[in-house]
Design a binder for these strands. Structure first.
Lengths: 106, 106
DNA sequence: TGCCTTGTTGGTAACAATACCAACAAACCA
DNA sequence: TGGTTTGTTGGTATTGTTACCAACAAGGCA
């Protein structure tokens, strides 16, 4: 079994992925490095909001950033995180199968 | 790319895993079905708090429950979620390597 | 029936997360 | 140099999450 302390560290990383904007960003960066403005243009959000989401991913160690010219370039540091999405899809399909589509409320 | 709506559904499932208590519970259920009282005794929390954490996992479709005698038995519905923990460990190790251990704040 | 045991639900207080706007800093360009 | 672009940081209002206690419901057993 895992200790409570361990669980806390792990959940911090998972929590960082638990937001639609951050999830989409990860998916986007899976295709390669992207600039801030490219990521920003995916959403209809204030630039400060996007910047803060990227900071959350950075602090979790999931992405890194690097200033290049006038652009800030973001990179997916640990691509294996996207492997997980297949399993998330399996959960969703299982929910649909069990007609519990609308139960995922958080 | 993934749509915003899709990202929302997925993030709901990931969010359900993003809490130490729920993460430990998933790890525990990986070993087999467990009763409420077995799960409850892992923590020093009020029973209502534990019950609510289990509800979150249920609503996400990650676990299921079934009344058996006087006990409520919980079961991990989609075991593949634990495959992900290996990658989370990779993130942690990468953070340590880059001396960013203390940056994972959420 | 009365009373444990087992777990869920409701209420609420404390805290965390998220969004916006405004202000700022750094680099680039005219 | 002065203005523009690019992104971050600070402040703050709103909303969401999590914990506790209390009350309840269902089942088992004296």
């Amino acid at each position: 079994m895992i200790t409570m302390e361990e669980a806390e560290i792990r959940s911090n990383i998972i929590k960082a992925m638990g937001h639609p904007v951050r999830l989409m960003t990860i998916e986007f960066l899976k295709e390669g490095t992207r600039s801030f403005s490219e990521i920003f243009s995916l959403f209809t959000l204030d630039k400060s909001t996007v910047s803060k989401h990227l900071l959350v991913l950075k602090e979790a160690g999931i992405i890194t950033s690097q200033k290049t010219g006038s652009d800030m370039i973001y990179r997916l540091e640990v691509p294996c995180v996207t492997d997980f999405f297949g399993c998330v899809t399996a959960v969703i399909e299982n929910n649909v199968r069990r007609q519990q589509v609308c139960l995922c409320k958080r």
